[in-house]
Nucleic acid binder design. Structure first.
Lengths: 216, 216
DNA sequence: GGCGGCTTCACATAATAATGTGAGTAGCCA
DNA sequence: TGGCTACTCACATTATTATGTGAAGCCGCC
């Protein structure tokens, strides 16, 4: 912890750039390497300013922060890049992470947290605001619960499965009765049985359970 | 404010379990739903204790926390599960995330951060210690982007998404109204709007579409 | 400064779903 | 043959949903 951490800022909004600069410049252990309004010369900037950490606005005119991130990671992957954004938009989060972002913060992150994040990223962590982290987790392929031996095998009969399938398709009792040529009461009867077996009390619960457990 | 957040603890170490219980019990806005040493009866525990958030130790004798997590997510995906672990081992992080963990903290997380994390996860975030987050990001290049074509934008507002989520959980109009502290008519109104936007005409269709298009 | 979207609420009516009870036919199996 | 399950149908009552119309407050945008 001898040399201060050199931080480079990319941010097109002049006000925000100024306040970030001020924040970082006034923090012990940090050193402002630069504060730029665009990343068209990212590779050259990095070479010249030798930052340890880059704070990169994701929305910038011309070259986006994501493209800037790609360029930096392509030439100097050792530099830690933390993305800054206003919204936690799914697509961008995904793109940024695939491009190798080391952290992802919302711009409304309080100054103290921001400084903390710089420390964390230097320590090998990946600071993320919880809202972003949530998006990241959602990107993972979920292992369907069907892979797990469910306590209730839900022994639906063929007819019951068939009717459950129709419920999932959005059919009403009437439509099912018409479609399968059986009486409305019979449909009711089947559905009552399905509810019992699935331990649910409404169509929506049944549909939800069916889709989640792959009962269709 | 509203109802306190009910927290359930799974932790096999008696000392740690006691200190966690004490921490949570003495925190305003939180309520200790229970503190158990194993999750062999996870489904029943959840049904009985009705927690909002579960703190799950990942290393437990018998049934592991990950298996417990799977079971909970299979039956009551609405419950937020935050995993607790000593080490940031890659494999387990991956397994836990694929099983649907909503957060992932190291056990050495200071009490204040832990409480903060519970609030975050309730707010729809995914609290992660930076070291874990780093592991998660590293997993990305290896995991191909899940097919998220997201054909229809289905511009649901935040409130609408929220309510749709509750429908998927099997909530009735009444339950939603009670849960969110709004009138039944307001719920109706939101749902009418949701139907318009999704081009559906019933709860089941809406739930089906939501689950299939990952609108939750 | 008006326009549109979001959120909230109210009243009303028709349609549909949930639950209970009961019952007949058919097939399987021990 | 008796017991079990699946599948079928009927009648009844209550609860919940679907749909329409209307409206007020708030906020962002042009």
């Amino acid at each position: 912890m001898d040399k201060p951490t050199r931080v480079l800022i990319y941010e097109d909004n002049a006000d925000l750039r100024a306040s970030l600069s001020q924040l970082l410049g006034g923090s012990p252990g940090l050193e402002l390497a630069g504060a730029l309004s665009n990343c068209t010369q990212a590779e050259a900037d990095i070479a010249r300013l030798q930052p340890d950490v880059v704070l990169m606005d994701i929305d910038m005119p011309g070259i986006t922060g994501i493209e800037g991130l790609r360029r930096i990671k392509a030439t100097t992957p050792g530099v830690n890049v933390v993305m800054l954004t206003v919204f936690d938009e799914n697509d961008r989060v995904f793109d940024a992470i695939c491009a190798g972002a080391d952290g992802y913060l919302l711009k409304k992150t309080p100054p103290a947290k921001l400084l903390e994040a710089i420390g964390e990223v230097r320590a090998g962590g990946a600071p993320m605001t919880p809202a972003i982290a949530r998006q990241v987790l959602k990107l993972f392929p979920r292992v369907p619960p069907r892979a797990v031996p469910d306590e209730s095998p839900a022994n639906l009969s063929a007819r019951e499965q068939e009717i459950l399938g129709l419920l999932v398709e959005g059919y009403s009792y009437k439509m099912i009765a018409a479609d399968r040529g059986i009486s409305l009461d019979t449909v009711r009867s089947h559905i009552k049985k399905i509810y019992e077996k699935l331990h649910v009390r409404s169509m929506t619960e049944a549909v939800s359970k069916a889709l989640r457990q792959g009962l269709t």
